[in-house]
Amino acid sequence: MIVGRYFFANSARFVPARASVDDKRILKITGEDGGSLAEAPLRQVKITPRLADLPRKLMLPDGACFETLDNDGVDELIGIARHLVSGGWMDRLERSWRAIVVSIILASAAVGAFVVWGIPALAFQLAMKTPDWMAAAVSDQTMTVLDSHYIQATEISEADQAKAMRIFEQVAKTGACAPHVCRLLFRSRLGANAFALPDGRIVMTDAMWQMAKPEELAGVFAHEMAHVRLAHGLQRVYEASLVPALIVVVTGDISQIGQMAVILPGVLVQSAYSREFETEADRSALTTLRKLGINPAVMAGLLERMDRERCGDRPCGGSWLGDHPDTAFRAALYRSGR
């Protein structure tokens, strides 16, 4: 016998009531005075699955409903007819500390593995399958923004440009990048810098040309060509949409998108991926330099000079938010040659 409230058929009107099941599996609802309110065979009654300590409902076929907070009582009442209720196993899992511990381990492992291996692998596959016209469109867009706001036409003489071009072609010939894909462009401003766009355009700033010796320049080109060959730019674009997608899955909530909760971890994770790309490009540049007969250690010198220009005598240092690994790490990589 369990105590609850009986709502009349399709009505918000209720009376205090009790429920019981007789040995013929008939659910009987009686009023406080003992008078019968309703009867129905148990198998026609829809019983809501147990969930935490929420009120439980026995929904009768005519639209009436018996509601109670006595969850254990309901479980006992329907004990013999448990198969009529779906989802009881869910509640047992949700309240079992063993299932919760297993779930924590499983979910952490799965989410961790997805962040560490899944997203990079998926982004790589997608980047490799992206048609050339799409990469070109993305690059056009970036170049337009850069040209109109951040960078200007070069001031390097044509003779010097031809010199740089020759080095660029030599590097490309080692297999660093197919010659018809990678092209060198000259621009000024933004300090000593070089960057690659997904479709193979590699931009070098005037300050970089002035700062780097030819051997170092070969290393810079090799590094940027690796970004192009390994489609790092496109992978970043895909990672930028896979990270929020993962957060939606974990929270089960689409409206979270665009909120702080999504953006901050997204930025942290994405800069970690970006640092991995830089290391990958550095390793590739190392191999290319060897093929050209250049000692990779020259790159360490360039990186340190760039750092000094930017931050003075103090080292710039790396950070969780930085998209490049810190200079000491990169210089050590080039010096060790591994």
């Binding site: 960057f195 750092d307 930017r310």
Partner: peptide, 16 residues
């Protein structure tokens, strides 16, 4: 004042 051009060596992506 201390280091010359601002944004020197900051990758353009980071400026963005």
């Amino acid at each position: 004042q201390s280091h010359g051009t601002p944004f020197a060596n900051v990758p353009p992506a980071a400026v963005g």
